[in-house]
Each structure stands twice: as C-alpha cells, then as structure tokens.
C-alpha cells in the first residue's frame, strides 16, 4: 500500500472513520457494553497481545484473544451483579488520537486504521493509566462501518497487572 493512503481518502470518509473510533471509546466510557459489542462483525477478533513482539495469538498466550461470542460473554459478565472486580464499577476515560488510515482494501471494503489511545481508569480509590496503539480493521457495511478486527498493543503489555475488566 502507498505511504500516505489517507491523503487519497475522501475527507468525508476520513471524518466518518474518525467519528467511529471516537464513538467506540464513548460507548465504553458510558458502559454501553452491548452497543459496543454490536459494533463488531460476527467474525470479528479482539486481540490484546501479552508480549511486545508477539506475532501470533495462536502459539502463545494473550491478555485477550476474543471472538464475538467470547466478547459477548465478557459483556454479560460485566452486567452480572456478582462481577466482584466491578463492585464498585470502574469509571474510565478513553482518549483516541493520531488516527491514520493506513490502507484501503477496495475488494473487502475494509480500512486499516491505526490510532493511539490512552485510558484512565478509576476504581475503588485507585487510578491507573493504560496506553498504546490500536489497529482497527473497519468494514464498510450497509448503513456504516463495523469492526472486523481490533488489535490493542499496550505499551506495558508484559507488566505485572492488577485485574483488567474494562476493555480498551
């Protein structure tokens, strides 16, 4: 693909993609988890590698490697009154930026989008920060865009974490 495909993109399409990324963040911050999961296609994969150099989600462990049904399990668990790690619930602030449309696959009607994100999370007296790169593969569907896959590369992916309940 060309170096700066974004430049060849219709500004309106770029705006649409940008707004989509912001909207995903907003759904998570507003704990609208069902609507968030609904942004993903049925064949979607949500991947958070556990090592900075990890290339395969198959041969070594990942912080998250969810298909759509697993994402939905995650959401149902968050809604359960006995999800102890969310009593009290987290409050989050997701910030997305540096959005670049790296590639356009006309045939699949898919855009490869890279962005930076930061997420502040406050829960039970403790605030912490996550940050890293998100790679979205966005698919053009009737009526708009959906996420066909998302890879989140946390800069601290191999750190000793406290439990993670809210996604990025």
């Amino acid at each position: 693909m060309a170096q700066q495909p974004a430049a060849r993109l219709d500004l309106e399409v770029f705006r649409e993609i940008e707004a989509f990324i912001y909207y995903e963040s907003r759904l998570l911050d507003e704990r609208r988890f069902e609507e968030w999961a609904a942004l993903y296609t049925d064949d979607a994969v949500y991947w958070v590698p556990a090592a900075p150099d990890q290339t395969s989600p198959i041969d070594s462990v990942s912080i998250i490697y969810d298909d759509k049904p697993s994402m939905e399990v995650r959401v149902r668990r968050l809604r359960h009154p006995d999800a102890h790690a969310q009593v009290p619930p987290s409050r989050t602030s997701h910030m997305a930026g540096n959005i670049m449309v790296d590639a356009l696959d006309e045939q699949a009607r898919e855009y490869s989008v890279t962005s930076q994100f930061q997420m502040l999370e406050y829960r039970a007296g403790r605030q912490r920060a996550f940050g890293g790169t998100s790679d979205h593969r966005l698919r053009r569907v009737k009526g708009g865009l959906m996420v066909a896959s998302k890879t989140v590369r946390l800069i601290n992916c191999d750190a000793a974490f406290r439990g993670i309940a809210i996604l990025f």
Binding site: V61, I63, I64, R74, F161, R162, G163
Partner: peptide, 10 residues
Amino acid sequence: QSPASIIQSD
C-alpha cells in the same frame, strides 16, 4: 489465567 480473565480478575 490472563490478568483480563473474567475468572482471575474476581
């Protein structure tokens, strides 16, 4: 077993 596991985090 992941830190983001819906089991472990509880």
